[in-house]
Design a binder for these strands. Structure first.
Lengths: 329, 329
DNA sequence: AACGTTCAACTGAACGTTCAAAGCGGGAGA
DNA sequence: TCTCCCGCTTTGAACGTTCAGTTGAACGTT
C-alpha cells in the first residue's frame, strides 16, 4: 500500500503538501496540486483510515447495540432503522458498528473506553432506560431513538406517538366509526402510553367520549392480538374499529377476526402502528402509522456529531411527525 | 483517558512491561504483575483500540454491505444473519461494520483500500457475483454467505439448498402426497436452481416421477405467490402439495389458496424455505426449511480469520445442512 | 537597500501501542 | 575468575497522518 510519503516522493514535495492537496487544496499552487494528484492516481494512494483515526483520536464509528432477537421474533423497526442509520452515517464520514447487547442489558461501555467507537445510538429505549442513565453518567456521547422520560439529560430523536395516535382516531371517526376499541401494551411503556393517550385525545377531539373507548392491554405478539380480537368480538356490543399499538398485534387482530368470520376493513376497521414491511402484504393490506425512519436516522447522526463537537452543549430532544398510511383496513 | 505511559509511571515500570502484563503475563514476575494490575485498576486504564489498530495495521472490522431494501421489502435472512454475525465476530475480537451497498452493486473497495475494514462478508450472492469477482481480483480478504458458482476462487459458507429441497420432497411424499407442484424463481438463480433440483431429486428418490411435477416460475413476492396458487388451483388436476423456493412466495400461496376457499395443510400442503420470522406466526403456521444462521456466521468468521492469517491458502467452500421444520401446512 | 507582507512549501512533533533487540543482575559451570 | 545463560525489564523504533510553527522567495513600499 502506498503511503503519503510515497506520494510525496513521487511528486517531489513534502508529505504535508500531499496532505494539504487532500484536506485544504486552496493552500497549494495549481501546478503542484496537479503533480500531486497525478502521483496519487498513479500510486492509487488512499489515506490510511487507521492512521487518521489514531491521529485524530476519533474512530469515526457509531456503536449500535443489537437487541438479542430470538430466531422467530421480529424486530421490524430496529432493522430498518439500522439500515437507514448506516446510510445517513456514511454521508457524514461515519459508519455503524454493530455489537450484541450484553446479557444484563448494559451497553458495552468498554467499546467507548477503548475508543473503539466515538459513542452510541440507543434504539428501543424504555422509560428511564438504564443504558441511557449509565452513559449519561459517564459522559459518553450518545443519542437515543426514542425518549426515556429523562428530557434534557441526553439527546434524543423520537417520533411523536401521541400525534400518531391522534391521527388514527381522527381517521377512524372521520370514516364514520363511533365505537372504537384500542389494544395497548401493558401500562408503563412510554411509547405505548403515548400512543394510547394520543388516540384517546384524538377521539375526544373528534367528539367521541374517550371513556367509552374499550382499552385492552396485551403483550406484543401475534397470538396476543388474536386473543384480543376474540375478546372484543365475543361481547354483545362489538366495536366498529380496533386501533392497536403495533402492527404485530394488528396481524393477530385480523387473524382473530377472520377466525370468527369477520373480515377486517368492513364492519370493523383495524389500524396498526409502525408500517412494518409486512403491513402492505397482509390480507387485506393494513392501515397503519409510518415512522419517518430515514429522517430519524438523519437527525440522530446530526445530533450525534453536534454532541461530539460540543460535549457540554444543552441536550436536545427532537420530535418528528409520523404519517398515517390508509390501506384497506 | 489514561495511557499505557500513565500506568507505567504509576507502577514504576516501563511501558513495555505494562504491555506484557496485558499481552504476555508469563513474561512478567508475579510481583511486578500485581503492581501493574493495581495501577491499571486504579487508573481504569484501557488500551486504546485506535492505537492498537494503527500499530497492527488491522482495523478488526468486518465490512457487510447492506442491500438497499425498499421500505416495504423484507430482508428476512439478511437481518438475522447480520445479528448472528455480529455476535460471532465479537467473540473473536472483531466487529461488524455496516455500509450501504453502492448504487452499481459494487463493493465499496475504498473501505478496504483505506484500511477501514480488514475485509468483507458478502451476503445474498448470485451466480458469478460481480462483487466476489472484483474482490478476488484485488486480492481482498472476503468470505461469502452463499456460493457464486466460482468454487475454489474464494471462501464461501453456504447452506445446502439441494439437500433442503430433497428433505421437503421426502417429507411430502412420506405424508402421502403424490402430485406435488413447485413454485421456483426464474431460472438462473443459483440458490433457486439448487433448491428446485434438490426437490426434484427428492421426488425421484421417493418414487414420484420428477417430470410429473408441475414447476411454475415466479418472482419473490407475496403477490407472485398468490398468482401462482390461483394458476395451480384453477386447472382440472389440482396438486396435493405445493413446495416453494421461499417463505414469501409461500405466504402468497396460502393467501391465494384461501381466496379460493382452500385452507393450506389439508388437501394441499404448502412448504416454504428460510424459516423467516413470520413463518411461525402465519395462519396456519408454515412448514419450512430452516437455515442454521448462527452456525453459518460462526464459520464465516472462522474462515475470514483464517484467510487473514494465510492470504495465499487454498479457498474453501463449506456446506451446512438445513433443517426441515414441520408445522401445520 | 532595508523592511514588511504574503504565499507556498517544508520540518518537527505527537497521537499510543508493540515488536525486536539490548541491558542487567545472578547463578551455574568451566 | 571468567563465561554463558536465564529470567526479567528496558530502550529504540516504527506504524501514517496532520497540527503548529518555520523557512524562503517574491514583491511592493519607503
Amino acid at each position: 500500500m502506498a503511503t503519503i510519503i510515497d506520494v510525496a516522493a513521487r511528486a517531489g514535495v513534502s508529505r504535508q503538501t500531499v496532505s494539504n492537496v487532500l484536506n485544504a487544496p486552496d493552500r497549494v499552487s495549481p501546478d503542484t496540486r496537479r503533480r500531486v494528484e497525478d502521483a496519487i492516481t498513479t500510486l492509487n494512494y488512499r489515506p490510511n483510515r487507521s492512521a487518521q483515526n489514531f491521529r485524530a483520536q476519533r474512530s469515526h464509528l457509531l456503536g449500535v447495540d443489537l437487541a438479542t432477537v430470538g430466531p422467530h421474533e421480529v424486530a421490524p423497526v430496529l432493522d430498518r432503522f439500522v439500515h437507514a442509520l448506516s446510510q445517513q452515517a456514511a454521508r457524514r464520514g461515519y459508519h455503524v458498528l454493530l455489537f450484541p447487547r450484553s446479557g444484563d442489558g448494559a451497553v458495552h461501555l468498554s467499546l467507548y473506553e477503548t475508543r473503539t467507537v466515538d459513542g452510541f445510538v440507543l434504539v428501543d429505549t424504555e422509560r428511564d432506560d438504564p443504558r441511557a442513565t449509565a452513559l449519561a453518567e459517564q459522559r459518553v456521547p450518545f443519542v437515543t431513538f426514542g425518549r426515556t422520560g429523562a428530557t434534557g439529560e441526553h439527546d434524543a430523536v423520537d417520533v411523536d406517538g401521541f400525534a400518531g395516535g391522534q391521527a388514527v382516531a381522527a381517521e377512524l371517526v372521520a370514516s364514520g366509526r363511533r365505537r372504537p376499541a384500542y389494544v395497548a401494551w401493558p401500562e408503563g411503556s412510554l411509547v405505548g402510553d403515548l400512543r394510547l393517550a394520543g388516540f384517546l385525545a384524538g377521539c375526544e377531539d373528534a367528539g367521541v367520549d374517550p371513556s367509552d373507548v374499550r382499552v385492552l392491554r396485551r403483550l406484543n405478539g401475534v397470538e396476543d392480538g388474536v386473543d384480543a380480537a376474540v375478546t372484543l368480538l365475543e361481547g354483545s356490543e362489538r366495536p366498529d374499529a380496533i386501533a392497536t399499538v403495533s402492527d404485530l398485534i394488528a396481524v393477530g387482530i385480523i387473524r382473530g377476526m377472520r377466525s370468527l368470520g369477520v373480515r377486517a376493513g368492513n364492519e370493523i376497521r383495524v389500524v396498526g402502528f409502525d408500517d412494518s414491511p409486512l403491513a402492505a402484504h397482509l390480507d387485506p393490506p393494513l392501515t397503519t402509522v409510518r415512522q419517518p425512519l430515514d429522517e430519524v436516522a438523519r437527525r440522530v447522526v446530526a445530533r450525534f456529531l453536534a454532541r461530539l463537537e460540543d460535549p457540554d452543549g444543552p441536550s436536545v430532544t427532537e420530535l418528528l411527525e409520523p404519517c398515517l398510511v390508509v390501506r384497506r383496513t
